[in-house]
Structures are given as structure tokens and as C-alpha cells.
Simulated assay, not measured.
Amino acid sequence: MTESIPALCEANVSRAAIYRVLASLYFKELSEEQLDHIKGLDFSAFDGMDEEFSAGCADITAYLRRKNSATRQLLAADYAGAILGAGMHDERRATPYESVFTSEKGLMMQEARDEVYKTLLKAHLEVNPNLRVPEDHLSFMFEYLAVMAERCNESLQAGDFAEALENLQIEQSFHRDHLLNWIDAYCDCLESCAETRFYQGVAKMTRSFVYLDKELLNDLTEAVSEMVEDRVAA
């Protein structure tokens, strides 16, 4: 039983790392330091993971390969136009809030925000009120799943398989109800309105990993469920 714990923990570490990279891409305009960090990432480790994910990595890598003194400003402008919707009034932009993509009138601060707020509150992961950003922002959702993956590992390493299973089931429900329900529409929107290959790649990578994580969560939940059953039967 314990032989499988390192493999499960490694999967969760990888999940958390990718979610945090994605969270940083959506939270705000990228700094020079962040761009240098992303440029230095070894995306080859994800080759073969998924065709769309690899395509997204290739777009980002190709764009940053030509990084120069104007790159950060070009990406900041694309972020402002495509994601913040700055200066746009008639066209729909890829504003990263679940409420915008799931509410009837496409407005912020709707039912989805309230549901995500309650989820974060229950997990003691309240968003800093000084940010003045609604809780159903994609960055906060990705950070939530990263933290939950780490908490699952803490339970596994402590031998509390029942708690780890409960954690994974909560993740599955959140992933289904607050990511899968709008990620296609969101990524379609971002890919169509982004002007740089970089953010078009971000859209591809985001969509791909959300779907990949559905399968990863299913596999993790099944494995930990078997561990719980084995312990009960022992």
C-alpha cells in the first residue's frame, strides 16, 4: 500500500506546480522576471502529455525565444486588451471570471462568485479583500486546486487515507462545477481575441490541462479509494 504513496504524491506535486504556473499567467501582467522564469522552464518534460498542451507550450516557447526589450510591453498590452478588456466595450473579452461566462447576462459577481467564495472560505483560503478581485477569478481557482493537491499529500504522508480521499472528492466536485462548465468557452474566447502567440498558447495549455486533470483526479481518487478499502479489510 505505502509503495504507491510516493507516486501519488509526485502526481499531486506536478499538478500543483502546473496550476500555479497557470494562476500566475492570468493574475496580472507579467513582469520581466516572470517572463525570464517562464522562458527558462523546460517544457520538454511535458512532450507527449497531450497534443494541445504541447502546442500551447510550443507557442509560448517560440514567442519567448525572440524576447527583447519590447516583449514585456507587447504582452502587457495583449493582456490588457484580451483579458482585462481595457478599452473594449462592444466585443466580448476573455475576462477570467466564471460569472461572466456562466451567468445569463454575462456579468461579474453573480452566483458562481458566491459559490466559489463559500468554497474558499471553508478551506480557509479567503482572498485578500484589498485586491478587490472577485473570488471566481481563474487564478484563485487554480491556486485553490494547487493547495488542495498539497493538502492531499499531507494526508497521504500522514497515513490518513480517508481524509486524502475526501480531499480528492472535493477537488473533483469543484473541478467539475467550476472549471469544466466554462473552460471551453473561455479558452475559445481568449484564443480568438489574443493578438500574441504567447496568450494563444496560454489558452491552449489551459484548456488541455483542465481536461487532463479531470483524468488525473479520477485516477488519484480511484487509487486512494482502493487504499481506504484495503485498510478497512485488513
Rank of each mutant, 00 (worst) to 15 (best):
L125F: 08
Q110V: 08
D184G: 06
R151D: 07
R231D: 14
M227S: 09
E226D: 14
C189Y: 04
A76I: 01
A11I: 01
E171H: 08
S44H: 13
A203Q: 12
G56R: 11
A146D: 02
F140S: 04
L216I: 13
A112L: 09
K122M: 00
F101M: 04
F46P: 02
V21C: 07
S69E: 12
N181C: 15
E51Y: 11
F142T: 00
S99C: 08
R207L: 15
A185K: 13
V147D: 10
V127W: 02
V127L: 01
A23N: 05
L121D: 10
A112N: 14
D42Y: 10
S24C: 09
F209G: 09
R93S: 12
L74W: 00
F209H: 14
Q200V: 04
V232R: 13
D90L: 08
Q172P: 01
R207E: 15
A55R: 14
E154A: 12
L190A: 00
D177K: 15
L131S: 06
D213R: 00
A82I: 03
D184E: 10
S14L: 09
D177Y: 12
Q110T: 09
A76R: 04
R20A: 00
L64Q: 10
W182I: 06
Y26K: 06
Y79P: 02
M1P: 10
K28I: 01
L107E: 13
H137R: 01
W182Y: 07
S173D: 10
M205W: 11
E154M: 07
A94P: 07
N130M: 04
R176T: 13
A185R: 14
V21K: 04
C193I: 12
Y186W: 15
H37R: 12
M1C: 01
D59A: 11
A194R: 03
N153V: 02
D160L: 03
M109N: 14
F53S: 05
R66P: 01
L138N: 00
L74N: 06
M227Q: 12
Y144H: 08
L138R: 02
I183D: 08
L138Y: 05
S155W: 11
N167A: 04
E171T: 01
T221V: 08
